[in-house]
Nucleic acid binder design. Structure first.
Lengths: 337, 337
DNA sequence: CTGAAAGCGCTTACAG
DNA sequence: CTGAAAGCGCTTACAG
């Protein structure tokens, strides 16, 4: 199959190659009628501008790279939330005429440098989970590169971040449970410095309790990372402590899914005996029974903000970390105490 | 930040630009010592070959495109199985020095043509679900393009496919349940022509039953596509028919997850009252309780086979559809009748 | 509004 | 084993 070039389109249209190039780039310099004719001929011949040539000449790849990194290897639960983010970012990029290169790997300084130095991508979006402290150490080495991370937004941290207002998310979830009359509310999630996002959700949980005149009982918190298995274990630990609780705020939906199993194993009903609120609004949250009340992180918006922010970074504009506002989605997993 | 070129590396190394190019491409023509020196200098200056220039000159993009398409829009369950495939394909491509462009969108003839005509990608991998009949109609329009699909392998179908030996998978799952003494085995999955993969799994199920001297009871089959919600409904339908069964073979793990919920809602225990076998071996299958016995589709192998097959297609080699052999993973969700 | 021309940074056939 | 040179297919400054 012969490859059509702009020169051939030019001959067919009876104009110069430069005019073809201008016409297809919608340059205002070209006579509208000429432009239309050229576009028609290009379409008829399935002509597409060669991206390598275009990139080389213009020194822009119009491509961003998306790196999904995991500390723990591939056999862990991949959080469906990240899959949504992946899709949103890809769509947002497409809408701005950018392509997305995908890579799954450990985070390495080389990988990042390679993508920019080789002109494969103008900037990089990092999605992942795992230890924050390790992570931030690697990010520090990269401050010249155009790298944007989905994650916790913390004052003074190196690098550029976009993330959810986790504290606010924790607050609205807990306040909702308080309004239903619950006073003994469990919290499922790792609140160490290595998980600042969960820690912030916990802070919001504490804010709500204190504001309601209640105290925070550390016995009601059980560590869990974002997986069904881990959530199941954490909920069981809460039960085994025997302190009694009528509601659970789970720092992720996957964790909540595991907790639901644990509750049902105790022959308790949701929401009659135990109310549960999750975090993320993954697709399964709608489909499980009872449908899960949860805190939605707006992935569509997040994807757009991330792409726009990255492109500003690429242009050299000043960029601040940004917070996406979460929102409570009320479904069937919570009831009055 | 100044961009380093091969010409500058050449000056630093005291050789010509062509020699730098050869050295970095590991050409045997270059004196080994010279090559090492050039490589060292390139490394020290963070030099990376400009991909646009390299691609333009060599007329190869060393990139494949991966299109994840959905009939049903983004708010459906994304099957974790596809996420594994995505990751495996990306890793396999990376191992072969290929980049992966990602796109989520409806399947369109244009999209495909654009990627090849613009030299963005040498070939395309299609991952998705939804109606097979619609799908095959679109594939038929593309037979010149380098497109490979993960899906059902059917004699005489247009296009190029790699898929799991679904019939065999259905057979080994059902045979295992038969060996445990089950004779009334439910099947969850859509067996219409629009879902040839599930239909094949059902054929394998029938094979095993017939081979054991049992007949196939259509009342024991309930339609379901691959989601928790749909699996939950299908299992409930099976219960409501009141025919009695002691085991369920579910045509996907997501469906099995929904069925587990339905069984537990009936106050029945797994595996004491009902045994369940799934299909896919998604990460949650390990983590749920009881851990799910399932048919594993080897996504790592599948990713490698897909990339290799696509690259052969790109080279113009003759390519046959290929089957990946499934394997039964025994966990805790099945017991003797 | 249009064309001729330069040049982006490589790869590789050709000559030695 | 090495270098000089052509050329991949565009974009865009320059001249008209």
């Amino acid at each position: 199959m012969h490859k059509v070039t702009s020169l051939e389109i030019a001959e067919l249209a009876g104009v110069s190659q430069s005019t073809v190039s201008r016409a297809l780039r919608k340059s205002p310099l070209v006579n509208p009628e000429t432009r239309r004719r050229i576009q028609r001929i290009a379409r008829e011949h399935n002509y597409k501008v060669d991206r390598s040539a275009s990139n080389l000449r213009s020194q822009h790849s119009r491509t961003i790279a998306m790196l999904v990194h995991e500390e723990s290897g591939m056999d862990s639960d991949i959080n469906p939330f990240f899959v949504s983010m992946l899709a949103s970012i890809t769509r947002a990029a497409a809408a701005r005429n950018y392509d997305v290169l995908l890579s799954f790997q450990q985070l390495s300084k080389n990988w990042i440098a390679d993508y920019e130095n080789s002109n494969k991508a103008e900037g990089i979006i990092l999605l992942g989970y795992g230890g924050y402290t390790d992570y931030i150490r690697k990010i520090e080495l990269l401050d010249n590169a155009h790298v944007l991370t989905w994650g916790p937004v913390i004052d003074g941290q190196p690098g550029h971040f976009v993330g959810c207002d986790n504290r606010r998310g924790g607050y609205i979830a807990t306040r909702y449970l308080l309004e239903l009359g619950h006073t003994r509310i469990g919290f499922l999630g790792d609140i160490s410095d290595d998980c600042p996002e969960f820690k912030d959700r916990y802070s919001g949980y504490c804010d709500a309790l204190l504001q309601a005149g209640l105290s925070v009982d550390p016995e009601l918190q059980a560590s869990s990372h974002s997986s069904m298995h881990s959530g199941h274990l954490a909920a069981r630990e809460l039960f085994s402590r025997g302190n009694g609780f009528s509601a659970i705020f789970s720092s992720s939906d996957l964790t909540a899914l595991g907790a639901v199993h644990a509750v049902q194993k105790e022959n308790l009903s949701i929401p009659e005996d135990v109310s549960i609120v999750g975090f993320d609004n993954i697709p399964s949250a709608t489909h499980m029974s009872p449908a899960l009340t949860t805190v939605r992180q707006n992935t569509v918006k997040a994807g757009e903000v991330m792409v726009d922010t990255l492109l500003r970074l690429v242009r050299g504009d000043y960029v601040e970390s940004q917070l996406i506002q979460p929102e409570l989605i009320v479904r069937d997993s919570c009831g009055p105490v």
